[in-house]
Amino acid sequence: MLSKLFRRLVEFLIKIYRRKTKDNPSPTPTPNPKPPVDPKPVHPWRICPLGEYWRNLHPRHVTPSKKHPDGITTVKGHCVTNPSGKDQLYSEEMQLIAEKNFGQFKLIPLPEIPEFQKKDLVYDHIIQGWTQYWNDVLKPQEPLDPCLVKALIATESGFNSNAWNKKHGRQRARGLTQVTDQTLRYLSDDYHELKDHFLHLKEDETLDPNFSICAGIRWLFRKKEIANSKIGRKASWIDAVGEYKHYKMDDPNMQKFIEIYKELKI
Rank of each mutant, 00 (worst) to 15 (best):
D181H: 13
A235C: 08
I16W: 12
H200L: 04
H58R: 07
N210Q: 15
H78S: 04
L184G: 06
Y123W: 04
T63S: 14
D190S: 15
T30Q: 12
L13F: 10
F6V: 13
K119L: 05
C147S: 01
S212E: 02
F211W: 06
D38F: 01
W219L: 09
W54L: 03
Q104G: 08
P36I: 00
Y261R: 00
K119D: 10
Q141E: 12
H200F: 05
V62F: 10
E205N: 00
G85V: 09
I108W: 12
K139E: 06
R233I: 07
S229N: 06
G77E: 10
K67F: 11
V241Q: 05
C214L: 03
L13D: 08
L152I: 08
R218F: 02
R46Q: 15
K195N: 11
E205T: 03
L5F: 04
I226Q: 05
E263W: 11
A151R: 02
P33Q: 13
I14E: 07
Y53L: 06
V179K: 03
F257H: 02
H61K: 15
P36R: 05
K76C: 09
P41I: 02
W54C: 06
F221P: 01
S84F: 10
I97P: 04
G129E: 00
I108E: 14
K167W: 13
P33N: 14
L220N: 02
K15A: 13
Y261S: 05
D196G: 01
I213R: 01
R19M: 15
A173L: 03
R19I: 15
D23A: 15
D87M: 10
R174Y: 14
A240F: 00
N32W: 08
L5Y: 00
V62N: 06
E263Y: 14
L187F: 08
T30V: 15
F102I: 09
K265G: 00
N82P: 03
P36W: 01
D145S: 09
E156Y: 08
I47L: 09
W237L: 07
M1E: 01
I258H: 08
I127Y: 02
K248A: 09
I126G: 12
P109K: 00
K223W: 01
P44V: 11
Q255L: 03
K202N: 05
L152P: 05
L2Y: 09
L187H: 01
D189E: 10
H192Y: 14
P49H: 07
K202D: 10
P25W: 10
I153K: 03
S3V: 07
E225I: 04
I14G: 09
I113V: 03
A163T: 00
Q95F: 11
V179T: 00
T180S: 02
L144K: 11
W237H: 09
W134C: 04
L194P: 12
W130L: 02
L199N: 02
K234L: 13
I258T: 08
Y247D: 07
R46P: 04
